[in-house]
């Protein structure tokens, strides 16, 4: 049984791209396309989730993701509650299930969850009452499906809906990245022509080719050749202390996206990054601010995609609010 879909194949929870069929992903993008009209109007609200309570439960710090979820919920006319648990219950020793039970007692209709441990969103989805929907806003190294869908939405807007003719390269810390995992699943589900990962061996997880279905390159000079989309990943500072890399300086020297390396890609290639960016570490400012960069568009699309996912999963969870 697929936890994410109801018996009619509609979105029930949104936890992981893996396990979702292609038509659901396309439906999310189509719905987001409709909502992106709303977000550009003078009055940026629709009454779809009026009277619903959405709780952003963040066990891990985040500004950007939480803000766009909050904005998305408000534009759907829902009531929104933001909870930063890392500083309250968890430190008092309350178990995750007890925290959830308390939130349910407030009659929440949806949980948007971020947690540092892989599998947490799925765990929560298995323990909520049937009318509550769960959306994964990032769990450990496992999945960040709304980020992946806003990236797919951005690619589709620029490159059209036929992913089969696209070559996409993801560059950087694949090992620790939930974003990369979800992007790869989404790209493969959408039948992308070729998905490449480019990273030093220390930043690639075990059996990556077999586990995720990607082409593996270690150097951008090989991997970036003729690609249509380049997705750069953020490099965390703690990778240096974990003996995974010698220095930011060396990383930029060999894997940073510069104008010269960008020139290896197709002439109309787009440059993406889930943010926040480290200028001069994984990406040169000239590229980040250049014509081919769509990094700020990704942020804007994040709102429409999150509205789509929220509206779709709430509709399917048996509530009547979605008129």
């Amino acid at each position: 049984m697929n936890l994410q879909l109801d018996d009619q194949g509609r979105l029930r929870h949104f936890l992981d791209i893996a396990g979702l069929p292609r038509d659901v992903l396309i439906n999310i993008m189509d719905t987001a396309e409709k909502f992106s009209g709303v977000t550009e109007q003078a009055v940026k609200k629709v009454p779809l989730l009026r009277g619903k309570t959405i709780v952003n439960v963040f066990f891990e710090n985040s500004t950007r993701t939480r803000t766009t979820f909050e904005l998305a919920a408000k534009r759907l006319s829902a009531d929104v509650l933001n909870l930063n648990i890392s500083t309250s219950s968890a430190s008092k020793g309350e178990t995750l299930l007890d925290t959830l039970a308390n939130l349910q007692a407030m009659h929440s209709d949806m949980f948007v969850v971020r947690h540092e441990d892989s599998g947490t969103a799925e765990f929560i989805a298995r323990h909520v009452p049937p009318h509550v929907a769960v959306i994964n806003a990032g769990d450990g190294r496992h999945a960040h499906p709304t980020q992946a869908m806003l990236d797919m939405f951005t690619i589709r807007r620029h490159k059209g809906s036929d992913f089969g003719r696209l070559r996409v390269a993801i560059v950087g810390d694949i090992m620790h990245s939930r974003v990369a995992r979800s992007q790869i699943h989404a790209l493969n589900t959408l039948l992308t022509g070729e998905v490449r990962v480019i990273a030093p061996r220390t930043l690639l997880p075990g059996n990556v080719r077999e586990a995720l279905g990607v082409h593996v390159f270690h150097r951008p000079e090989e991997g970036l050749r003729d690609v249509d989309v380049i997705i750069m990943l953020r490099l965390q500072k703690e990778r240096m202390s974990g003996a995974l890399l010698p220095s930011e300086h060396e990383y930029f020297q060999y894997w940073g996206l510069t104008q010269e390396r960008l020139a290896l890609a197709a002439p109309d290639a787009i440059v993406m990054h889930p943010g926040p960016i480290n200028r001069g570490v994984e990406i040169d400012s000239v590229v980040a601010d250049g014509d081919q960069s769509v990094i700020l568009e990704q942020v804007t699309h994040g709102i429409a995609v999150r509205m789509a996912v929220m509206a779709m999963s709430m509709r399917s969870s048996g509530t009547e609010g979605a008129a």
């Binding site: 599998g119 769990d139 450990g140 075990g206």
Partner: peptide, 15 residues
Amino acid sequence: HEGVVSTRLGLPGIP
């Protein structure tokens, strides 16, 4: 175990 499943699930592996 560090391998296909740990990579897919994003769990830290033991080689």
